[in-house]
């Protein structure tokens, strides 16, 4: 091990304390995340995230965060924001990246830069109802990481692998989830 202090800006001590605490009080670990969405016009909508529930009580972000979503002009829309499927890619990228930083901190690996590019491919024949054999969603997601860190290439690969193993969004997109939708 080196004598230099490894700092990726992740408070691993606090995360480990939280893990310890939630092991003995599993109820506190039950979180509910929330988003609210409002239609603006056409395919343009505005979503906000502020409140969430966890540690046994209602919690709140420091401020309300807003996300515009729309479709691009080639799909006959006004392009007021990223498409919803791009927001899914954003979610996956952010989750994996946060995981890389946390795992690196835990393993005493100093990160210099972490960049990723995500590609989600889909055939619009699905959502446009042209071919019912084609699914609506991505037929695959490709993530490419470029990581500069003080570690061997196997150790860097292991960071990314461990990050996938612990990622909520990776789990959400790779595994089935029950979705119930109610109206009014």
């Amino acid at each position: 091990m080196t004598d230099t202090i490894i700092d990726n800006g992740v408070n691993v001590g606090a995360l480990l304390d939280a893990r310890e605490a939630l092991t003995s009080a599993p109820e506190a670990g039950k979180f509910t995340w929330e988003a609210s969405c409002k239609w603006i016009n056409g395919t343009h909508s505005r979503s906000t995230c502020e409140a969430f529930y966890g540690l046994g009580e209602k919690q709140s972000h420091k401020q309300e965060f807003t996300f515009e979503s729309d479709h691009p002009e080639v799909l006959a829309a006004e392009d007021n924001g990223a498409t919803p499927v791009e927001l899914v890619l954003v979610g996956l990228a952010s989750c994996l990246t946060a995981g890389v930083a946390a795992v690196a901190q835990r393993r005493d690996i100093q990160l210099k830069s972490v960049k990723s590019t995500l590609k989600g491919s889909m055939d619009l024949a699905g959502i446009l109802g042209i071919d019912s054999d084609i699914r609506n969603g991505f037929d695959g997601i490709h993530v490419h990481f470029e990581i500069d860190a003080d570690a061997s290439s196997d150790d860097i690969r292991a960071l990314v692998a461990q990050s996938q193993k612990r990622s909520a969004v990776f789990d959400i997109v790779t595994n089935p989830t029950q979705v119930t939708v109610e109206v009014n």
Binding site: R157, Q164, N175
Partner: peptide, 23 residues
């Protein structure tokens, strides 16, 4: 991960599970 009627659903994480085991 799940069984729906006659259909069994598998996780899309096979590649990563294999990568973890290889590493």
């Amino acid at each position: 991960m799940e069984i729906r009627g006659n259909e069994v659903l598998f996780s899309g994480s096979l590649k990563n599970h294999c990568e973890l085991a290889d590493l």
